[in-house]
Structure formats: structure tokens, C-alpha cells
Amino acid sequence: MGVKVSMTVNGKQVSSEVEERTLLVTLIREQLRLTGTHVGCDTAQCGACTIAMNGKAVKSCSMLAMQAEGADIMTIEGVAKPDGTLHPMQAAFKENHGLQCGFCTPGMVMNAIDFAKRHPNASEQEVREALDGNLCRCTGYHNIVKSIMAGSKAMAAGK
């Protein structure tokens, strides 16, 4: 039992011994103790576990840790600047009250950053469609949509 996996997580090289059946999210939360990545469902619907893998938003509950061998992973803990300054997308969520209980928030932010990079001038409807894989039960999405539109603008402006 047990395989060794190695990858880069938030700029640091990590390796860990896992069972073959270990999910990437379990490795991140349990072994690496990066608990900002959350688990909200067991059918890949809620998106609370969204991380960036090689620059793309993926659901870390839907892949095995072994599948991330050699990958460059960024979790919510790696998004703000080293001095603690929020990323423009994080700042936009704060300024627009795009979060309430905070549980879906890391996944929302990770998805939003990837989306904003690819669609810097998205319409409200496009943002809503892009959130299809991220569930929030608190905000009604109104302020999440506002946050992502504002965050996208700020990112494009290179803030």
C-alpha cells in the first residue's frame, strides 16, 4: 500500500505518501493541511474544492492525488501576495460583499481567477454561466457576479 506523489503546491515542492485511492483534495487538506480548499459534495457539483492545476481551475475532489504527479498546484492559500495583500479578485469579493459564510468562497475565487484570465470583458450573463459549477447557498449570486465583474476589470488593469 502507498505510493509517493510529488508536485509543486503554492510554489513549494512537496511529496507525500498516499493510498492509491486518495483524492487530490484529501492530499491537500489532510496531508498538506491546506484546509482552505473545501469539500461540499460528493458528485463534483458544488465546486468548493476548486484549485488551479497548471494554471487551470479544476475540481480537486474529482481526481486522484496520483493524477497530479508533477503538476503545479495553486490553492486559495497561495493566491494573495506573500506580504498578505489580497489578489484583485479576492479584494473584489470583499469590496462587493461576494461572500457570506465563506465556505464556497475559495472555490469561487479560484474559478473566477481562471475565468477572468480567459474572459476579461465578460458580460453578466457569461459570468453567471461560468458559475455553473460553483454552488453558493448564501449570497444568491448577485454579489458574486458583481465581484467577479469588478475583479476581472481590476485584473485586466493589472492592479
Binding site: R29, T35, G36, H38, L86, K94, G102, T105, V109
Partner: peptide, 23 residues
């Protein structure tokens, strides 16, 4: 007044501590 939330920083940076996060 719409004071921005004091709790947001921890939630936005993954520093929230939900029950399952506590080991």
C-alpha cells in the same frame, strides 16, 4: 453605513476554520 466585513480576509485566504478543518 456599509462597513466592509472584518471576517472576510480569513475566508478569502483559506484561513477560515470550519469543523472539518480542525484536526
Amino acid at each position: 453605513t456599509s462597513v466592509l466585513r472584518k471576517e472576510d480576509y480569513r475566508f478569502l485566504t483559506g484561513a477560515g476554520q470550519y469543523t472539518d478543518d480542525i484536526s
